[in-house]
Design a protein around this nucleic acid. Structure first.
Lengths: 337, 337
DNA sequence: CTGAAAGCGCTTACAG
DNA sequence: CTGAAAGCGCTTACAG
């Protein structure tokens, strides 16, 4: 079954291939009557332009790349990426762009993937996740002149476009809420310290605690896994003056923290209040359901995809601020008893 | 910054473009000395073949497609797909194949995506998930002659290659285990009834219960969400003769079931034993940790990817059986009291 | 073993 | 408004 080409359409319509191309792409250069006739024939024979041929002449691959640097174990567990991807994808497919996905093991591999994509012209641009402080990927992408949008910030994005959310404000809201409930000893179980947003949240946490007159503001650095989240929680709760509230940097660690509290015979929220980051369905799956800093992750991904398509189109794109995550109080927070 | 092409290499090496192509692809037609010289130059100037040009002449896109038909909400939550993707991806990237992902809303959209991919020659083959009984995608793929591997079965795959696991045997093992513990009233919270593997599991459950002399074998049909899983559990546990054990078709519903039992004041595993399907890290996140039917999902995905590459290479591929999921007993199962 | 050439299916100046 | 042609960067018969 041979795929129809513009040559087939041209023959049928009795015009040149060029005319078919113009008609199909809405370019001037053909009369309206001819255009309609060509479109009808294309429709009739089920024509779909060959993406390789198009990429070869037009220089656009109509695809966008996303490299994810996390082990399968963590990737599978965190709802974040799948939600992000589905948001990105919704925006892309509406514009007939494909999403090319690659899981990478380390920064070297990720940079190699960008170089390869660029060399192969396989993608027209990329989305950058998990921005780090002094991120080595940023100068590489700038040098390659590969269109890119950083999902993260603010700052540290070099000359690249970005979409970011105000994590600092969100974390401050959570701390204020806990203090308003009467908590004075609040701890935090953080994500990977080398990630920029972890740094931003840690500083916001320290600042908020200081501003509200709390004497201590302990952050334990973890890696987003339930294993480390549970262990950190056990350690915090075994201390002499244990915290009455813990803020977690993702939902998975928060759930592990909840289980750890149960193991230690502590009631949630009676003995311990818990706030999770990312209000995924996981938070409503457990008992009590978790108070969380919620955000619409698919919308965040869609926003980033839109920004990337603008960059690819040659628009001047800076740093777009996305909605600030907001607190969703549920059963896991209450006044300390 | 212009990307280097084979013409650049040819000029530098003082040979024809054809010779460069042969050398780069390990084809006969160039002397070993010439080949080495060409490879060295390619390496030196950082040559990467343009994938569009390659696809246009060689007829292979070096990409594989995966369409996922689930709402973002569910997709994000279930570790299954991310683990599957990371396994697929690991296998593909080792062979320099890209993975093109698309999230679709319904069967029509999914079939349209296959047609488009085929027309655009954007992918060399596709992976089919969530096989249904009388699945309309199967004849479409056969007709398009788009290389495909079904992840699922056995049976109902038409002439397509497939990779499947013996869910029936796994479910029987779980039921036998529960009966050995002393359970006589076992219920099941199942996945989407239109999926083939749900049907297979339901039949296996009914058969195992009958074989072991249990008088009833209730399966409640759900959709894999925690919401429905929790509701089904509440209903089952509110009945006059409530089950002492429930087997769930995924981990998310099992966790929701655990929370529902807690809400109703029932102890797990004292009053209710729980078995989950898919031993994701979620199962070890909750307290008690969940007994689960475990399987290596990334390996399953890698297996499917290998099969697909074989189909693309023109090999005759039938139905490969993958490892049978096996029971991992943990804290959520015990003799009924 | 090597070179020159055609061709993959498009897009896009360039003439009429 | 339309046609004929060149070109994107490869691969692959086809001659030497």
């Amino acid at each position: 079954m041979k795929r129809p080409t513009i040559a087939d359409i041209a023959r049928r319509a009795g015009v040149s291939k060029g005319a078919v191309s113009y008609a199909l792409n809405g370019q001037p250069g053909v009369s309206e009557a001819t255009r309609q006739r060509i479109l009808a024939i294309a429709e009739e024979i089920g024509f779909t332009p060959n993406s390789a041929a198009r990429a070869l002449s037009g220089a656009t691959a109509n695809a966008v790349g996303l490299a994810l640097r996390r082990p399968a174990r963590i990737l599978g567990l965190e709802p974040f990426f799948m939600e992000l991807i589905s948001g990105v994808e919704a925006e892309l497919s509406a514009r007939s762009y494909a999403l090319t996905l690659q899981v990478v093991a380390d920064p070297e591999a990720e940079i190699a993937v960008y170089r390869r994509w660029w060399g192969e012209r396989r993608v027209d641009g990329v989305l950058l996740c998990d921005l780090r402080i002094d991120d080595r990927r940023v100068p590489v992408l700038e040098q390659l002149q590969l269109p890119a949008v950083v999902i993260g910030g603010p700052g540290h994005t070099g000359g690249l476009a970005s979409v970011w959310a105000d994590d600092a404000a969100a974390l401050a809201e959570a701390v204020e809420y806990l203090v308003a409930l009467g908590h004075r000893r609040i701890a935090r179980v953080g994500g990977l310290p080398e990630l920029l947003h972890t740094e931003i949240r840690t500083r916001a946490f320290t600042d908020a605690c200081a501003r509200l007159g709390l004497s201590e503001a302990v952050t334990v650095a973890c890696d987003y896994t339930g294993e480390q989240g549970g262990r950190a929680t056990r350690r915090l709760l075994s201390a002499a003056r244990r915290p009455t509230a813990i803020v977690y940097d993702n939902d998975v660690m928060a759930i592990a923290g909840l289980a750890a509290a149960h193991e230690l015979g502590l009631a949630v929220p009676g003995d311990l209040s818990i706030v999770a980051w990312d209000d995924s369905p996981l938070c409503r799956l457990v008992h009590p359901s978790l108070t969380a800093l919620g955000r619409d992750i698919p919308a965040y991904g869609a926003h980033a995809a839109r920004a990337l398509l603008a960059v690819i189109a040659g628009d001047q794109v800076g740093a777009y601020q996305h909605d600030t995550p907001h607190l969703k109080p549920r059963g896991s927070t209450a006044p300390p008893r």
